[in-house]
Amino acid sequence: MSKRGWPFLLGGLLVALLLAGVVSNYASSHPDGLDSSLLKGCTVNADDEITGGTCPAQQAKDHELADSPLADYGVRGIGNDFLSTGLSGVLGVLLTFAFGAGLFWLARRRTPTGAAATGAGAPPPTGDR
């Protein structure tokens, strides 16, 4: 990382944590574009549960990991919806960052950056890290 890389990284993570931890509670809980397209032909109640008719969505089966402790963006055992959703979002952001950055770090190019590796227009590497 360049010297000014860490503040950006931490700032970005903070924004992601706020979005997933707080703002997520104000998200729409209605089916998304794909799910609603598959509901065509069925009637649904106020909770978006199928009440009649025939539609492709009726073929849907349970998720393999439906009883995962974080299934459906909630933390099992936490009764407060706001807290449950928010905490699952925070854990998801941290997990995704750890998993993603870890994989990308392992897969990164390790050739010394001195040669032609800096590419066009990029500032020369300062060698800090």
Binding site: G5, L9, L13, A16, S24, T96, F97, G100, A101, F104
Partner: peptide, 28 residues
């Protein structure tokens, strides 16, 4: 891998985390 250097790897992790967060925000 040609793009993925010491600088881009953590950035890419951040991009994934940010996308995870924003994917939670279903809008009507």
């Amino acid at each position: 891998r040609a793009d993925l250097d010491d600088r881009l790897a953590p950035m890419a992790g951040l991009v994934a985390a940010f996308i995870f967060a924003v994917q939670m925000l279903n809008f009507p």
